[in-house]
Nucleic acid binder design. Sequence first.
RNA 1: GGCCCCUUAGUCUAGUGGUCAGGACGCAUGGUUCUCAGCCAUGAAUCAGGGGUUCGACUCCCCUAGGGGCUACCA
Length: 482
Amino acid sequence: MSEARVRFAPSPTGYLHVGGARTALFNFLFARHEGGVFILRIEDTDVERSSAELETVLIEDMRWLGLDWDEGPAGGGALGPYRQSERVDIYREYAEKLVSAGAAYPCFCTDEELELKREQSRRSGLPPRYDGSCRELSEDERQTKRRDGQSESIRFRVTTEQDIRIEDLIRGEVVFPHDMVGDFVIMRSSGLPTYNFAAAVDDALMEVTHVIRGEEHLPNTIRQLMIYESLGFDLPAFAHIPLILGDDRSKLSKRHGAPNIKDFRDRGYPPGAIVNYLAFLGWSPKDEREMFTVEELAGEFTLESVASSPAIFDETKLNWFSAQHIRAGGAGKFFDEALPFFPKELVESYDRELLAEIFDIVSENLPCYSMIEESAAAFRRGVPSYDDSAAEILDGTGHLLEALADGFGALEEWAGARIKQSIKETGADLGLKGKALFMPLRMALTGSSHGPDLATLIRIRGRDDAIGTLREAVARYRGRNV
RNA sequence: GGCCCCUUAGUCUAGUGGUCAGGACGCAUGGUUCUCAGCCAUGAAUCAGGGGUUCGACUCCCCUAGGGGCUACCA
């Protein structure tokens, strides 16, 4: 029983965002590092906001990131089911156990009453705790209320009289005053458990040894501790990891359009890059390396080197990580997953080998595949459209472009070095070199003043396209003052 | 309002009493180049503030300030 068991327990109420993904990642890395078990548990007790579709996307996102779980829905494991909506009998059983032991009791207060009381205590500057109206109801009183059809929830009876200490692996000892919480609901009147109850029961039953979760759960831990204790469960270790904040320094939330994993997937980021970047939000290795595979991260990861202060999500840096990954892997590693992002025009006019070459060229600086269209624009065959600045450069260059085309036509071997040589020779004949020579050529071919190496570009576009495009460009400019 | 957490450049971080406070993104400059990118080199930029403790504080303690989280029959 020394095996580490951790879990990621999301609720399917929105797309998996970078904060949740990072929590999942840390759990995953910890499990892999320790040779333990990673559990995925779906917390779908909030029926209003949860949905099966979102759960499907969540699972896709997890798989896409490579965060495979050992136990979970659609994944096996002996301590399931792993979806809370399928465990309500279990929660009910334990809740009843607590009621018969006197550690919990039925409560008949309505939402309105509770809201009113909360408001009152807020106004008088007191912590809004439950006032205990239903705490000491006699069995007769309860039966009467039941007969009246009053809805009934179950409340945990808080009896703690000492301050509550949480030994947190990241923060050290955190102490909460004992009178901070009042009796809290564990089973809603709908028959479904609340988060704190379900989480504590499940973590215990699933034999979770380390609860690694976002810092926002730190204050909740005291309630869960009480549940553990009253049910006689062994305590897990807790590690509350710092939050990931948005630009505005507030907690990333689904509601405010937090950056989510599906979005990055759709935009064509390699999952390994996302994982690499996310790992560095709140964690750092012993040395100064930056580029890691998931396996390498798992090898290095420890909770001790997790920071305790929150981090701001920075897409610019993610882009850098991603561009690094793509450049390092090149077409050899990423071409297949990048192919669907190529514009149709390119896919139709080049064979696979040339497309891979194009990918290698644009992957020098490519944060995500959806930017291929823009980066590879110069490889579109045929005459591009020219704007005013192009016209300025092209004016009066007709004979140069003609000569260049002739030079390409005369080449025996269609190779980059030969093409470059040909351009220079043509230039020498006309007394042109450098920018005056290359820029009109680049403009005529691509309609842009910058782009990939010209000789390579021309080689890839092919002799027919190079010559044809140049001649057509000249023809188009013939009417002007050549 | 109450409770708790956090505080090194714009951002991510290293640092655990004595360091020129290190690295990375971004930014700027120069080099390479037809151009962009890349690469190389260089540079600007940081210990929130105030008290202690100490021979000596970024590092330990206290206070203040700022930020964040929680305070639900959401998670």
